[in-house]
Computed example of a mutant assay.
Amino acid sequence: MLGSVITARDRWLKPGGLIFPSSATLYMAPVTHTDRYSDSVDFWRNVYGIDMSAMLSLAKQCAFEEPSVETITGENVLTWPHVVKYLDSYNVTISELESVTSKFKFNSMMRAPLHGFAFWFDVEFNVPTVAPTSVIESHQVNGSLRKRRTNPSETLVLSTAPEDPPTHWQQTLVYFYDPIELEQDQVIEGLVTLTQSKENARFMNIHLEYTSGNRSYVKESVMR
């Protein structure tokens, strides 16, 4: 969809014309969601008194193979978020969207099972500036980048963050097949690569590589 906006911008936007939203930022963060995992997996351990744990492997695949669009809250988020990609609507190119890779490093704020990663976005409705980067500063918070606006009163922001009121877009969660037990301050680091599918331009391939507790993991999924 964004590719269509870029094409329309390049063909028809007049000098001084406006694009709304004017920018977008994609975030990610590790999450815990015990109730969701239990409802999808642990249910099979006792189905009305019958042990159907032989279904666990299939249940995990069916429930967590693909990303899930659902609503979580700030209580599910284990760390400060990481900025995966910032997009300026006036300057972004289609080639930039074909593949996005970002390295991340998180420190868990609590002891909890890590069930996966959540993704969400903010969009801003603002007039363009001569130097867009001068309006938005980045600062380091616990190893992750967050966006800080120098004058919030001048910018209208639509946020789909877990701590904000729910929206139509909710959040996108990539669940692990098996949770990782985290201790407080335990490090989770790795990289995420988002690649536009060659089969369907509206599909997104999500490749996650991450390590924690001296163990390495890989999760591949497709956002359809």
Rank of each mutant, 00 (worst) to 15 (best):
M1D: 15
G3C: 04
S4G: 08
I6D: 03
T7A: 09
D10K: 11
R11A: 08
L13K: 05
G16C: 02
G17L: 01
F20P: 10
A24N: 05
Y27N: 09
Y27T: 13
M28G: 04
M28N: 03
A29D: 07
V31W: 00
V31M: 02
R36G: 00
S40C: 13
F43V: 11
R45Y: 12
N46M: 00
N46P: 00
D51C: 01
D51Q: 00
S53P: 11
C62M: 15
E66I: 15
E70N: 08
E70L: 13
T71M: 09
I72P: 00
T79V: 05
P81G: 08
V83E: 09
K85T: 01
Y86P: 02
Y86M: 07
D88W: 03
S95V: 07
L97S: 00
E98R: 09
S99V: 04
T101G: 02
S108G: 07
M109N: 11
A112R: 06
H115M: 03
F121C: 11
F125C: 12
P128W: 01
A131Y: 12
S134W: 06
I136D: 12
S138P: 03
H139R: 08
H139K: 08
Q140L: 14
R146K: 15
R149G: 09
R149F: 14
T150R: 12
S153D: 13
L156F: 14
V157S: 09
P162C: 04
D164K: 11
P165H: 05
W169G: 10
Q170C: 14
Q171N: 10
V174N: 04
V174S: 05
E183S: 08
G190N: 02
V192Y: 00
L194H: 01
K198H: 07
K198V: 07
K198M: 04
E199W: 12
N200G: 03
A201Q: 11
I206K: 05
I206A: 06
Y217M: 04
K219I: 03
S221P: 06
